[in-house]
Simulated assay, not measured.
Amino acid sequence: MIDVNDFKQSINDARLPAGLPLHVMALWYDASGDWKTAHDLIDQLTDQRSAHIHAYLHRKEGDNWNADYWYKRAGKTRPKVSLAEEWDMLVQEYSR
């Protein structure tokens, strides 16, 4: 499991940790200001985890229709929390 505080510090340090799961790596790039790389990492994947990250990224982009499509593919609904709170929840969920 990744320590969320260490993970956030790696973003501040612009130092991608080695061995990150792909889904968490996408979240790292997103938080580092590189939405495109984050999206490119998961765009062609069809598993539910990828769909969940994909949904978050489109929600962040402001494309709620597309986000809702991906939340449905992930078996989720769009959360009623801030983007920052959702990002934290995703890191915790997919870093296990």
Rank of each mutant, 00 (worst) to 15 (best):
D47N: 04
Y29Q: 04
I42Y: 00
T77V: 15
S82T: 15
G62L: 09
D43M: 12
S82E: 11
F7E: 03
L27S: 00
D88V: 12
V4T: 11
L90T: 05
D43Y: 11
K76D: 09
Q9L: 13
H58F: 08
H58C: 08
D40C: 04
D88S: 12
S50F: 01
I53N: 01
D40Y: 03
I53P: 01
V91K: 07
L57F: 06
H39I: 08
D88I: 13
E86Q: 13
W35P: 03
A51E: 05
S32R: 03
G19E: 07
W65R: 14
K72L: 13
K76I: 10
K60E: 13
Y56C: 02
Y69A: 03
L22N: 04
R59N: 04
N12D: 13
D3I: 10
E61R: 12
K72V: 13
E61A: 10
M1Y: 10
T77A: 14
R15M: 12
D63E: 08
R59Q: 07
K60A: 14
Q9A: 09
G75N: 09
E93I: 14
W87C: 05
D43G: 06
H52N: 08
D47T: 02
L57V: 06
E86V: 07
A26R: 00
K8P: 04
D47E: 09
W87F: 15
L27Q: 00
E93T: 15
I11P: 00
I53Q: 00
K36A: 08
Y29S: 02
M25I: 03
N66I: 12
G19L: 04
Y29T: 03
I2P: 01
H23Q: 06
D63M: 10
A74D: 06
M1A: 13
S95Y: 08
E85T: 12
P21H: 06
I2K: 01
H54A: 09
A67F: 09
H58A: 06
W35S: 05
S95D: 13
L22G: 02
W70A: 03
P17D: 06
S10T: 10
K72R: 15
I2W: 03
L16T: 07
R78S: 13
Y71N: 03
W35L: 14
E86N: 08
R15A: 14
S95H: 07
D34Y: 06
D68C: 11
D13H: 03
L83R: 10
I11Y: 01
E61G: 09
D13V: 05
E93Q: 15
S32E: 06
Y56K: 04
S82L: 12
Y29C: 02
W70E: 03
K80N: 15
